[in-house]
Design a protein around this nucleic acid. Structure first.
Lengths: 160, 160
DNA sequence: GTCATAATGTTATTTTATAACATTTCCGCT
DNA sequence: AGCGGAAATGTTATAAAATAACATTATGAC
């Protein structure tokens, strides 16, 4: 198995989550600084909440997490932060679940592809996979902008 | 360009829609008969509505179309028919749009892949494309059940 | 025909997302 | 420092999408 495949497997294995959280937060800060966009406290808060989760979270779950600390947070606050984070490629939307997950490869602008476990609800983000449909799209004169690839099934641990 | 590629291009070209509607309805009837499942009037009605559309329709749009004929149709009626049609592979859900579209290759149980034009909102359904992420999934011990592939962009006609 | 099951109909509610507008914060500029 | 416009956040209300729970009707096996 190649290195990239090992890396891809990470999301379904135990590892030091606190470490990767810290690292990803730092990367996010750097990326936003480089792009001269503002990773404000609110946006950072939402990103942190998503990073703490091993699973995609619904917008209202994020909202709930925010309300646990500070009351009366309203939906637009969450949705706006999520919009920003998505634009910056720091968060992905899982379309088939109306949910959001922190990106584990921020900065890589390739199309994300996900393996979603129906049992434990963990998600593995695959990086840099080819998508033959892209080539076909181009042959048909279709200009692809954004691809959604979500594979639902059972992860190795949950198959037993 | 191979035959299958020509076929894939169909959704973005003009053709005799009435004919393909009829043909697909017939195929649906046959499939359901073979499987001993009931394509009831309600389910048929929903399928017909979707077949008439060149674009994915939201559940409430379908509902609206039904209410134009008969009043007081409630959402569960539509959702249940859509559920059935999806189970039978006669209708696909476009996850990134919370919308539904009639399948143009019913009976082929491969994972559907879509090219979605952001301007004209037409959708091309690609058949039988490989998905390398599937192989990777398998290598990771992940058992894939259902894949969502939706490529958003601009179709040839709308690029001009 | 009777009965169990499947399908449909009905009412109410939940979940997800956005519109519209008010207020505050940030940042370049003088 | 202070002004002014833009960006971000806060607030209120509502729209859009989906489902829960239960009542009624149709279907097909016996």
């Amino acid at each position: 198995m190649t290195d990239s495949r090992k890396d891809n497997a990470l999301a379904f294995t135990r590892h030091d989550h606190a470490d990767c959280q810290q690292h990803l937060l730092q990367t996010a800060q750097q990326l936003c600084a480089k792009r001269s966009v503002r990773l404000t406290p609110r946006r950072l808060q939402v990103l942190e909440i998503l990073l703490r989760s091993h699973q995609p979270m619904g917008a209202y779950e994020v909202l709930q997490a925010m309300n646990d600390i500070e009351h009366n947070i309203a939906p637009p606050i969450v949705y706006r932060a999520l919009d920003f984070l998505q634009q910056q490629g720091l968060v992905h939307r899982i379309e088939s679940q109306n949910a959001f997950i922190a990106c584990i490869h921020p900065g890589h602008h390739t199309t994300a592809q996900f393996l979603i476990c129906a049992k434990c609800h963990r998600v593995a983000e695959l990086d840099d996979q080819q998508l033959p449909a892209m080539q076909l799209a181009q042959d048909l004169g279709f200009k692809a902008e954004h691809a959604v690839v979500e594979i639902n099934g059972l992860c190795a641990a949950c198959r037993e």
